[in-house]
Design a protein around this nucleic acid. Structure first.
Lengths: 105, 105
DNA sequence: ATTATTTTTCTTTTAAAGTGAAAAAATTAT
DNA sequence: ATAATTTTTTCACTTTAAAAGAAAAATAAT
């Protein structure tokens, strides 16, 4: 039982693979753009997470979108975005939006 | 015969109304984000243009989207964007995209 | 011809995205 | 237990798109 959704890749490996700084991944996490699992304090990412992050990089670098727009499209349940977006990122976003809404009340 | 689509508002008036610099409207034009008519050299905008630009401002300022993302959504014929988007902007984009495609060949 | 207006070009400002450096916290090794 | 290593976090700096300022070029008006 070791599938696409298993969170087993540490942050440095993922950052190297994507060609970004690990700080960038911490940064994305603040926007719930990816949700690694924590064992102790360490973060672990799945293959699905990695493919999603690759897609986000493509949207940002090749296409020129910004973070905020990607977030808006997730919120809007945009088909093209969500098709590439792992379940747990959407779940993360539900929590994130709930918290935002609570703060606003 | 003086309707919503009549292009009769000069750039300074539109800029003042939107609370932006007229340079910003020239800038948007380079991306075919709005297509004023030219009488002589002067540009004239319609009420529909103005409402569209108001919406673009809202997406950018209140929501934090960037120009590139709005352009991508127009290309994708995104429902929520296009619902607010005047016909001639979409037409402009068709031309713009045709030109881009020609250049790439 | 001179004045005023609009467009265009060049330059600067501002803010988000990303990264470097290093402190803080935690884990591992000795 | 303490030293060494690793991971996280914070602070500050860099880079780039978006926007605006200044002024030159082009056009229209008097």
């Amino acid at each position: 039982m070791f599938d696409e959704y298993d969170k087993s890749y540490p942050i440095e490996l993922v950052a190297d693979f994507l060609g970004v700084n690990s700080r960038t991944l911490y940064y994305y996490e603040r926007f719930s753009l990816v949700c690694p699992i924590r064992r102790g304090r360490k973060r672990y990412y799945s293959k699905v997470d990695i493919r999603w992050l690759e897609y986000v990089r493509e949207l940002m670098y090749d296409q020129g979108m910004n973070l905020r727009s990607i977030i808006i499209l997730i919120r809007r349940r945009d088909n093209i975005i969500l098709e590439k977006c792992p379940e747990d990122v959407v779940d993360c976003f539900k929590n994130y939006l709930m918290q935002i809404n609570k703060q606003e009340e």
